[in-house]
Each structure stands twice: as structure tokens, then as C-alpha cells.
Amino acid sequence: MSETVTALKNAHYDAGIAEVSEIGPLGMITIRGDLDAPFVRKVAKKVTGVERPERGMCNSEGGAGIAWMSPDELLLMCPHAQVPDVLARLHAAFEDTHTLAANVSGARAVFRVDGPHAREVLAKLAPVDLAPEKFTPGMFRRTRVGQVPAAIWLRADGSFQIFCFRSVAQYMFDLLKAAAQPGSEVGYFPPESGVNREKV
């Protein structure tokens, strides 16, 4: 079997006000269909161990999770090696319903932004209210980061996980590095507020 590599071979930057890392390879499967259909909720929970999230949220546990992408789209996350198995189970559950499950692991790049100024780094780049009381852990938001589409997920440990297209991975990494460069603290958000710094 061919070797799986991420877009930037897990590039890492820690010289600035926040740590930026490309993570992965992460298993990612898009589900499109009726998100309220019982068979969708049931199989999504079965393969990830978490409930289908409410609008604008992401539920996760261990290496698996489900993110709410749009009124008819979910992003399912799982360990990369499990993708073929999970996909087979989804296809079996969806049978001939009008529901899609597609492997998008290779189509995306995923980044982690961590550290007390992580919130500030994202706030510089996205048209999203990232105030600690407005953007809280578990929230998942599709938006624009710089000039490219992306999704921002605030994890329970206070770090941000960014999803974008693989083709713009280098742009995203450079952009996040620029926003995290040394001495670029804005100090708009109090560094500790709203963030549980304990690692899970």
C-alpha cells in the first residue's frame, strides 16, 4: 500500500505567540442527506461513539467525532486507518436512501493552533466573533480564514482545529504563522479567559 502523507508533512511552528501544527493524516468522511433521519443519527453514533451534534457544534471523543457542516452535511472524523471500514458501515446503513458518504481525507488539510493566544490568532483572520463568551468550546464554524474557505473548531482543551482544502494548505500554514509571529499579541482577549488550559 502507498504511504499516506499530509500536505505539509506535519509542518510545525512554535517560534511565535501560538503553536501552529499541521496534524494528520486524519480520517474524514462527508455525509450528506437528511441529518434528522434516525438511521443517519444511529449509524453516525455507532461508528464514532458520539451523538450527532446540534447546529454549529462538534462532538468528539478520542480520535473520532462528528462536526455539523450545514443543514444537510456532517463531517465525520476517525483514525485514518479506519476510513475504509467506517465507510463500508455507512454505505451498508444508507442502503438505497438518498444519502451520501464520501472519503474526503485526502481532500483536506488540518491544522492545530494552540497556546494562550490561539484565540487571538484566529480572530485576526476570520470574520467571526471569537470573544470567549461568544465562541465557546465545542463550537464548529465554517467561515473564511484570510482568503480561503475553512472551518474552525474550538476543542475542549482550548486549542483550535482548522480544516481547509489540501490545495491551500501552504497558504493556510503561512497565514497562521504570520498571524502568530513573535510580538504580534493584540491583547484584546484576556489570555486565560474562557479557556481550560488543562490537556485532555
Binding site: 443543514p71 470574520p127 467561515t143
Partner: peptide, 12 residues
């Protein structure tokens, strides 16, 4: 009105 997100116009 579809996802209930409020954002400025550059997201649209």
C-alpha cells in the same frame, strides 16, 4: 436563514 450564522458580508 439556513445555518443561522451571523457574519459580515465578506462571508457571503
Amino acid at each position: 436563514p439556513c445555518c443561522h450564522v451571523t457574519a459580515e458580508e465578506t462571508e457571503f
